[in-house]
């Protein structure tokens, strides 16, 4: 029997699942590892975990739980890839990473070579999928019956310390506006003042290039690109970003890309909707003062 199980780490994941579930078109249930929801599918299994255990400690149990489903889907993220591939390995099941389209329940589209090529792939159920929510039109999940579920982690890798979710700015992968910067931002304080200032004024998120992260200007969770976060905001402001293939892989589904760069030959201008050859330190503060709707 064809049936989809959506696995969400928390409610924010679940909010991104409606479009995918609708596009796949199969009856579905949801498993929410932490948090609460009354929408999610016919059955909403709630594990109520306060901290998400490491993948190797829960994959065995989840493999048993999911084995009756033909499709098991997660929002693409580092933690979902960590867990989904482990469960798929236990079950020897197919897995599609970063699905961006569905042709049928056995045929999917996915990007490869940093998004330079789109592959059409076939997989027989059971199939595990991590999908990019920005490629599926938002849709509501159906309301259902909440079913409490116990998850008892098995022995395995142990978390000693973890970064906490920072409040304030929206999550990069869900932000409508992103102000992003590269190495020309010089240091962490300048990055925060200049980029963060404009982002906050617009109610947006802050992103960074790999070079900015590698040089310690920005924390790693802000990295946008092939190996960082894939984003698709309505507005992506790229300040001092030359536009490597790897960075472009993470931003090309943005609705409007604005490039601000001193180098008029920077490749970012080839994909930007609006470009200005100028110093970001001149432009960004003025944008903060002049853009309609920006809070000063």
């Amino acid at each position: 029997m064809s049936r989809l199980l959506l696995i969400a780490f928390d409610e924010s994941d679940l909010n991104s699942c409606g479009g995918f579930a609708t596009a796949l078109g199969l009856p579905y249930d949801a498993l929410l590892l932490s948090g609460n929801s009354t929408v999610g599918g016919e059955k909403i299994f709630q594990a109520g975990l306060t901290a998400i255990p490491t993948a190797d400690t829960v994959a065995g149990l989840l493999a048993v739980f999911v084995h009756t489903y033909s499709h098991v889907a997660f929002v693409s993220s580092m933690r979902s890839k960590d867990l989904a591939a482990r469960i798929a390995g236990i079950l020897d099941a197919a897995m599609i990473t970063d699905a961006i389209g569905i042709e049928s329940p056995t045929t999917f589209l996915r990007p490869m070579v940093a998004g330079a090529v789109i592959a059409t792939v076939d997989a027989e159920p059971p199939v595990f999928i991590t999908f990019r929510p920005s490629n599926f039109a938002p849709a509501e999940l159906t309301a259902g019956t909440v079913v409490p579920m116990g998850i008892e982690p098995a022995p395995g890798s142990k978390v000693v310390k973890a970064s906490a979710k920072t409040a304030g700015r929206p999550d990069l992968s869900q932000a409508k506006i992103i102000v992003s910067g590269g190495k020309p931002l010089k240091d962490a304080a300048t990055f925060e003042t200049v980029l963060g200032g404009l982002a906050d004024a617009l109610g947006g998120a802050v992103g960074a290039t790999r070079a900015a992260v590698d040089t310690g200007i920005a924390p790693n969770e802000l990295q946008v690109g092939q190996t960082g976060k894939i984003v698709a905001p309505n507005l992506y402001i790229a300040a001092g970003i030359s536009g490597s293939t790897q960075h472009m892989a993470g931003i090309k589904d943005s609705k409007v890309i604005v490039a601000i760069n001193k180098d008029g030959d920077a490749p970012i201008f080839e994909v930007a909707d609006i470009g200005i050859v100028a110093d970001l330190f001149d432009v960004l503060p003025q944008l903060q003062a002049k853009l309609p709707g920006a809070r000063s």
Binding site: A93, V121, D273
Partner: peptide
Amino acid sequence: KVKTRSYANPPARGAGIRVNSVDELV
């Protein structure tokens, strides 16, 4: 378990406009 049926190039993003001042940019 997964077979690639075909490979395609995604539609390219066309280049947009260049502006010359912050006011034009806004």
